[in-house]
């Protein structure tokens, strides 16, 4: 006969409370809103899946989703190769290492809305270095009026802000490669490209996976910087899902549709991240023992 001691549950209690308050209760509140309609005065009516249907049938939602997908793909396509390239060029020893690392970490230390403000001023045609410089070169640049210019500015800002994260991750992967690998490759007569292709890239695979996942999730949830820079404009051209969501929830106070939309948004991110992760670890699995499976 086993002697059960139910007092052990007490030990789990603090963690349960923490998880409940940080995740479960907020999430359930959103779920609660998403299936009800409210006219203020704390009056709620059950509406079932109506808000979800509305969200999934609205053009506004799909447009914002497409903008998000486009933005994330462009940002990933630029930041990942650029980050790898910079990491490869960084010095491996000496004082230069610390200098480079500090320089690289700087953009990451700046609060996000400050990044937005920096670029907002930087891009202004009247006083901004970038904006004024471009217009005085005779280019028709104005991010507040031209959607393409707005996109270019938002993307440049994201690259400036986040490439260094990719650099730092890749660099950590690179310095972890033992010197003997390079020496062996040297002796085997390997070319620079062969060293990258056969030693550096495979050895960076794990950190690259993390970099891609982080950059994807972050860029897909982007809010602060474009909100400060363009406010979603001109028109709706830089209105991403998150900006749209805040407009709906706080601006229009449509709690129900906003809750439904945020749940859909959440599921999309979850699904895409899972797909990314599975695809990338799968391709890794036949070459190497994956997580949990070790030889």
């Amino acid at each position: 006969m086993k002697n059960w001691n139910n007092k052990a549950w007490l030990l789990v209690l603090p963690m349960l409370a923490l998880v409940a308050f940080s995740a479960v209760i907020p999430l359930m509140t959103v779920v609660n809103y998403s299936v009800q309609d409210s006219f203020g005065n704390n009056e709620f009516f059950w509406v079932g899946t109506e808000w979800f249907e509305e969200v999934l049938h609205s053009e506004r939602f799909y447009n914002a989703l497409l903008r998000n997908l486009l933005f994330s793909s462009i940002v990933l396509a630029i930041e990942i190769p650029l980050g790898v390239a910079i990491a490869l060029c960084m010095p491996r020893r000496g004082v230069a290492v610390s200098v480079c690392l500090v320089l690289m970490a700087l953009p990451l230390l700046i609060p996000w809305n400050v990044v937005g403000t920096i670029w907002q001023i930087f891009g202004r045609v009247d006083i901004g270095l970038l904006g004024h410089g471009l217009t005085s070169l005779g280019l028709d640049y104005n991010y507040t009026q031209d959607p393409l210019d707005a996109w270019i500015t938002v993307i440049l800002m994201d690259i400036w802000h986040w490439t260094s994260l990719v650099v730092l991750l890749c660099y950590s992967g690179l310095v972890a490669i033992p010197e003997a690998y390079y020496q062996a490759a040297h002796i085997d007569g390997a070319s620079r490209w062969a060293v990258f292709r056969n030693i550096q890239l495979p050895r960076m695979k794990r950190v690259l996976l993390i970099a891609i996942l982080l950059r994807f999730m972050d860029s897909f949830m982007i809010y602060t910087e474009p909100f400060v820079l363009t406010g979603g404009g001109p028109g709706n051209s830089t209105t991403f899902l998150s900006i749209d969501l805040v407009q709906m929830a706080v601006g229009q106070f449509d709690l129900g549709p906003a809750a439904a939309m945020s749940l859909v948004y959440f599921l999309i991110i979850l699904l895409l991240s899972w797909v990314f992760y599975t695809v990338m670890t799968k391709s890794d699995a036949d070459a190497a023992p994956g997580l949990g499976e070790r030889s």
């Binding site: 003997a180 020496q183 040297h186 002796i187 007569g189 390997a190 495979p202 070459a287």
Partner: peptide, 18 residues
């Protein structure tokens, strides 16, 4: 090194992972 035609085996095994 690559022109000396020397082969070297290191303390830690070096293989090309992929």
């Amino acid at each position: 090194a690559e022109q000396r035609n020397i082969a070297q085996v290191f303390q830690f095994p070096v293989v090309y992972d992929t």
